[in-house]
């Protein structure tokens, strides 16, 4: 299942834009735009999403190229971690108060 929005009927395809706001941080999805190809897509992204010094690096991805998980399978995909409390430090209450643990 791809990300929503792209339509083959449109003259310019849809691109998703990711911006790294600062060194040391991940690229974060900021929005989308239209462009005829990747060369102009990355330039449009620069012009549109970094006008106020919001970024030091930009990624563009054709919206049609993104595969997403299926929201109908949300249960199967994302509910399994529930109850596996032993993955979290706060589960180990007996060591509470002991320093450097």
């Amino acid at each position: 299942m791809t990300t929503p929005g792209d339509s083959a009927a449109e003259i310019w395809p849809l691109w998703e834009v990711f911006v790294r706001s600062n060194r040391g941080l991940s690229h974060v999805h900021v929005g989308s735009l239209h462009a005829p190809d990747e060369t102009l897509a990355v330039r449009n992204a620069r012009d549109l999403y970094t006008r106020r010094s919001e970024g030091v690096s930009v990624w563009v991805v054709p919206a049609a190229a993104i595969t997403t998980s299926d929201p109908d399978a949300k249960g199967a995909f994302f509910e399994s971690p529930a109850g596996k409390n032993y993955r979290h430090a706060s589960y180990y209450s007996k060591s509470e108060g002991v320093k450097h643990l």
């Binding site: 849809l14 929005g31 989308s32």
Partner: peptide
């Protein structure tokens, strides 16, 4: 005015996630 073009564009993108194309 340039910002307004950008804002229109952000909003068209939001509507596009609901199946309406900008065209």
């Amino acid at each position: 005015v340039q910002d307004e073009a950008g804002h229109g564009l952000y909003l068209y993108s939001a509507a596009q996630t609901l199946g309406a194309t900008r065209d």
